[in-house]
Design a protein around this nucleic acid. Structure first.
Lengths: 339, 339
DNA sequence: TTGTACGCGTTATCAT
DNA sequence: ATGATAACGCGTACAA
């Protein structure tokens, strides 16, 4: 490893001068700076970030801690956040926790070790008190937290509103018997105040039903499973086999589920959208390439990245204003999975 | 930030004793170690990794540098590598370069700054000499490099063999007029020695054709485009509109392309697989959920992660044996996009 | 068994 | 305009 001392020796100056020159300090003459830069280039010098971080207390890196890397939502998120943060001069370190409590804890512990200046974290099981303890004062933005009053800036999708829009759209297109994947039925008053993004979507679904004079019942729900393709495939096939296709529209908790639901319905001989309309939530790019192309409530990932990263950088740079709950822009994208 | 000094003060010992105790050094008595561990836990101590790395020269982190985060192949790769490395005691830092030369250069420069012990890098434009310069001796495994004799361990898919298998399979199922997406025609002797993974796949395609008595011609090829859904969609629609559907099978350079090709064909009223068979390459998990489910040459991502990470860790730990070119396990996965 | 002292490569303060 | 010099937090040789 080539250090500032090596450059200093080669250029015949002191190590301190090299430091100043490399940081473009105005007190260094143009001549010596040029000489030093030339030597640095020749030697392929690269600053030791551990030393820099240790000394300055700043790493110019942001950690993004997601649950899984292997789903389209996380992928779009990581991509957008990584690109935007780069444009603002920060490196992004992506980590996954597999939603395991011990991993969330250990990753956060790792993260808080002066390796980054701030954290974008999607908590699942870890209690907020533990998040505070692990982060030890490091700036953070929480993605879709389950609790209110976290003490951190938060970023969420407008889940209730989105599900309301999705459901209302299906209703407006003539669907009469809707299904919501994936949740058990729960009393509206119990869920409308819950922050959990799944419950929020259920609340939006139920509000749209009520608005249209339909009383939500347990029969409107496909019980709770994972939000992925395999689970939703199995669940919808199960419903179709046992109860028959007595519905004409399915509101899915996210796009991945919608893809599994569509595949399951197709395999049961159901036509989409002629027999059943399917709508998703997230707006993953590949939704356009499924058969039929998926109608969805699309998240604006660039807006997500911009708001989140801007808020975090502001905190890193000392912003002491009260914490804010941010909401990402979304829009209804109509494709061909709905009639 | 709570440091060893804080713990030392609280526990009434020296900072060095804390250091030894936390690393379970046998020379520390059980009593003092327990006391120190208790204090550390109470204070939520987390070692400063910059300081540790600076001092020890080891970070226990591996950087994974991919082109893009927003495609399924990178996603599967990042996921598998991240999980396996974690099981071997290493953190994974994922970075994307967008295939831009300046980004590849700057990310590598960043990487080489003592922030990780080794690098898994997927080079595209950056010449190998620059990779060496930027990495400055840091252990690395190169993914699908374009050149031979890189001086690094490499990991690639068996592209020629895979494309040969894919093409042979279509031929064996009765396809007679195949198309290869995406490449221009090139003389077989020119390409069969090239390491570029695209050319390798072309070579496998041509070898299978020749093996079956078919002479490759420019009309067997859909000219070169990007390996993504949008490009392949546009390209195949273009072919179908201009030249008609004079083919009955398409060998795609990867799964993403195959998905675009299928969507394009479907939109042109072509039935898959009745009229045209489509086969992909990569084995992305969502291939199963498209219509029809995609037949493909599937990469074993866990095998990929295991071989790559094991080789890299061996180098990090001082392995000086000659560099090796590794190949990931693959298998033909037959679904319904081929007849 | 525990404490003292030093250095890793930077940044930053103070002289000159 | 440049050079000494002191931290930053940790790991380890050596002294006690």
């Amino acid at each position: 490893m080539v250090t500032m001392r090596d450059i200093a020796a080669e250029a015949g100056v002191s190590q301190a001068t090299v430091s100043y020159a490399l940081r473009n300090d105005p007190s260094i003459s143009a001549a010596t700076r040029d000489k030093i830069l030339k030597v640095a280039e020749k030697l392929h010098y690269s600053a030791n970030l551990s030393a820099r971080t240790l000394r300055s207390g700043r790493s110019n890196a942001i950690a993004l801690v997601v649950q899984d890397l292997h789903n389209p939502y996380s992928m779009h998120l990581s991509d957008a956040v990584s690109q935007y943060a780069f444009s603002r001069g920060y490196q992004i370190l992506v980590q996954q926790t597999q939603s395991a409590t011990e991993n969330e804890s250990s990753v956060l512990q790792y993260i808080s070790s002066a390796i980054c200046d701030g954290v974008i974290f999607s908590p699942t099981k870890l209690p907020i008190a533990d998040v505070h303890a692990r982060l030890a004062g490091k700036p953070a933005v929480l993605l879709s937290p389950l609790e209110y009053h976290t003490g951190y800036d938060t970023m969420s999708a407008p889940c209730e509103q989105g599900a309301f829009t999705a459901t209302s759209y299906l209703l407006s297109r003539g669907c009469q018997r809707l299904l919501f994947y994936c949740s058990d039925y729960a009393d509206y008053d119990d869920i409308k105040c819950a922050r959990d993004s799944g419950w929020q979507r259920v609340a939006g679904f139920q509000r749209a039903l009520l608005r249209n004079g339909i009383e939500p019942t347990p029969s409107h729900f496909v019980p709770h499973r994972s939000w992925n393709r395999e689970s939703s495939y199995a669940a919808i096939v199960d419903v179709a086999r046992h109860s028959g296709v007595t519905f004409d529209g399915v509101v899915c908790v996210n796009d991945e589920s919608a893809i599994g639901v569509m595949r399951g319905l197709l395999d049961c001989g159901v036509r989409i959208p002629e027999d059943v309309s399917v709508i998703g939530f997230d707006g993953i790019l590949e939704g356009k390439f499924y058969t039929p192309p998926l109608t969805t409530i699309a998240i604006d990932y660039d807006d997500f990245a911009r708001q989140t990263v801007d808020a975090l950088i502001a905190r890193i740079e000392g912003d002491k204003s009260p914490v804010r709950d941010m909401t990402v822009a979304t829009r209804l994208v109509v494709r061909e999975s709905t009639r």
